[in-house]
């Protein structure tokens, strides 16, 4: 009966690299760190807008 871990020695370097990557992922999940950064500084403009308004955004 074959073992789930049979042949893992043949891919030990891949296992080391991917384990490190999964470790980083778990750390990011626990600390709430987003790989792609924040959504801040996001500038969007609706296509339905009918005219330009200053720099395109309303500021109080």
């Amino acid at each position: 009966m074959s073992n789930f871990f049979d042949g893992f020695g043949k891919i030990r370097y891949y296992i080391i690299v991917m384990s490190g990557l999964v470790g980083v992922y778990l750390w990011a999940s626990i600390t709430g760190t987003r790989f792609s950064g924040d959504d801040n500084e996001l500038k969007e403009e609706p296509r339905g807008r009918t005219h330009a308004h200053g720099n395109g955004f309303y500021h109080k």
Binding site: F4, I11, L26
Partner: peptide
Amino acid sequence: IEQEKPMNRFTLLLIGIVLLSPFII
């Protein structure tokens, strides 16, 4: 090709960890 089967099993293990981690955390 020798590495294919262990790599597929290891990949399944990683996918399981990634998908289950949000629930565990």
